[in-house]
Amino acid sequence: MDDLEAVSSERLGRRLRELRTESGMSLRAVARELGISASAVSQIERGTMRPSVSRLIAYVSAIGAPLAAVFDLTGQKEPPPELAVRRAGEVAPIRLGGGVTFRRLSPGPTPDVEFFESTYPPHAVSTAHGQFLKHEGYEVGTVTAGELTIEFESEAVTLAAGDSITFPCSRPHIIGNRSATVTAVATWLIVHG
């Protein structure tokens, strides 16, 4: 990862609150969708609690926003570019619960496609609450460093550097790094529609 500092919890929370407000959903309605207290949603939106990967994805799914919208911290809606170039270090990564970091790789908004890099430090998992995640779309991932294990309800698949996986996001899953010493990095393409 480059030297760009990760988005602060406060800035992430502020952006989530903006997206929720744009969606027209109340804080309590989002809390009901996520199965957590309104106080916990408020803590996420104030930046006093950092969401896990699965909680962040569940949050944006509940409000009907793409995950990529979280990275658009200006709040300005951009049309899909005819040509877009984004240089390394121009988009700050988002650090989530457990130290997992997400970085948007697509240089601009791309309809129905989200392209990310995730970094999982040793023993990091996508969920802090042990619940399987499911969301909209179809996921394609490639591990570029270390190993990641994707747990499904009836099986687990461990991927090493260079290995790829694809599955419908509606299939409940948890992603984690079981290593005690090696950081895992993967790129993910989520296709909607």
Rank of each mutant, 00 (worst) to 15 (best):
H135N: 03
G146Y: 02
S164N: 14
T149I: 05
H173D: 02
A156I: 03
G146K: 08
T181R: 13
D163Q: 09
F132E: 01
P172K: 15
S154R: 13
Q131T: 15
A161W: 07
C169Q: 14
S164M: 13
G137T: 07
T158G: 08
A145S: 09
E139M: 03
E151M: 05
I174W: 08
H173Y: 01
H129R: 14
A184Q: 15
A180L: 13
V140M: 11
E139T: 09
S164I: 11
T183W: 01
E151Y: 03
G146V: 04
G137I: 10
E153F: 02
K134D: 02
E147L: 02
T158S: 14
V185I: 12
C169P: 00
R171A: 08
V157G: 02
Q131A: 15
V182W: 06
V185Q: 13
V185W: 00
T144D: 07
P168L: 11
G141R: 09
G141Q: 12
A156S: 13
G141P: 02
V185G: 02
P172G: 15
F167M: 12
G146H: 03
G137C: 10
D163N: 11
Q131Y: 03
T149H: 00
T181D: 05
G162P: 07
L133M: 11
E155T: 09
G176I: 06
D163A: 12
A156W: 01
T149K: 08
L148G: 04
E147A: 09
H135G: 02
G162T: 13
T142P: 00
T158C: 10
T183A: 08
D163L: 04
S164F: 06
N177A: 10
E139I: 07
K134L: 05
N177L: 01
Y138C: 00
F132Q: 06
G141A: 15
E153V: 13
E155P: 00
E139A: 03
A160N: 05
E151R: 12
T144H: 07
G130Y: 01
F152E: 04
A160K: 15
